[in-house]
């Protein structure tokens, strides 16, 4: 971790009494060499991070920084090369660690031959939600994402924005304590973005934790309590958004560019 990171890493330490929802310890993710004689590709170096209960945490970094690899480990899609990751104290490779998670992937196309309510019923059953409760939750999340009027229509007839909203609905079907969002506003119109912001704020007010990666830094600045910036597989900075903005006397986009080492060309 860089000096900046150490300086700003006060966020998690400020709330020692809170439960660590996500704990990443010395995480390294490497991919096998692509050609003979090459070394392995290091996606994540030695990442340590903690996200506590009830916070909205932004996970930022330029493309290829290692965000996706970290998310993959967190969700159990791939094992870490070294180190470990825990969700609610459970190592992520155990499926039960995902019982309290909601995950919205970036740009996913759901089963086209299902309707919205059938899709949600399917995902809800995977969580073993009792039938009556599941139907109530389906009603509630479909209303929340404004898809209630089209709940019986097949997903293949949905627009891109509607697909993203059904994605959000499936992520909320188990009433998760931790929501992991990967570019949640990608493909959404301004109204859709506002809706996502509202949902995140609402979840926060309910004491839920939201962990999301995004390139929309304006959005991150609006909704996040804390952020972490990684670049080239290393954690460059972690801290409270308000503290960082105060410390650097500028907005998040400028801070981000500075931290990842981008020097803007002098313009005329």
């Amino acid at each position: 971790m860089s000096t900046e990171a150490t300086n700003a890493a006060s966020g998690a330490a400020e709330s020692p009494a809170r439960e660590a929802v996500i704990r990443i310890e010395d995480l390294a993710v490497e991919y096998p060499p692509r050609a003979f004689g090459e070394g392995p590709t290091v996606a994540v170096g030695k990442l340590s991070l903690e996200v506590t209960q009830g916070e909205v945490f932004g996970f930022l970094g330029p493309n290829g920084a290692g965000k996706t690899s970290t998310l993959q480990v967190l969700l159990g899609f791939q094992p870490p090369t070294r180190g470990a990751a825990f969700i609610y104290g459970l190592e992520v490779r155990h499926p039960i660690a995902r019982q309290r998670i909601g995950y919205l992937p970036e740009l996913t196309y759901y089963y086209k031959f299902l309707s919205a309510e059938e899709l949600l019923r399917f995902y809800g059953r995977l969580f073993r939600i009792p039938r009556g409760e599941l139907e109530a939750r389906i009603d509630s999340v479909l209303k929340l994402v404004d898809l209630d009027p089209v709940r019986k229509r097949l997903i293949k007839t949905y627009s891109k924005g509607m697909q993203q909203r059904i994605g959000l609905a499936q992520a909320l079907i188990n009433s998760p304590d931790l929501l992991i969002l990967d570019e949640p506003t990608s493909g959404l119109d301004p109204l859709g973005r506002m809706k996502v912001r509202e949902i995140i704020q609402r979840l926060k007010s309910e004491g839920k934790t939201v962990f999301f990666s995004s390139h929309e830094l304006g959005e991150v600045e609006t909704v996040c309590d804390r952020i972490a910036i990684i670049s080239q597989g290393e954690l460059k900075m972690v801290g409270r958004v308000a503290d960082l903005v105060r410390q650097y006397q500028t907005h998040l986009e400028r801070i981000f560019l500075k931290v990842v080492g981008y020097e803007p060309q002098a313009s005329a």
């Binding site: 995902r98 995950y103 992937p105 996913t108 969580f127 992520a171």
Partner: peptide
């Protein structure tokens, strides 16, 4: 291909 495997495996499914 359609990436439905990700929300699926992010549920408690092995």
């Amino acid at each position: 291909e359609s990436r439905t495997i990700f929300p699926l495996l992010a549920k408690p499914v092995t």
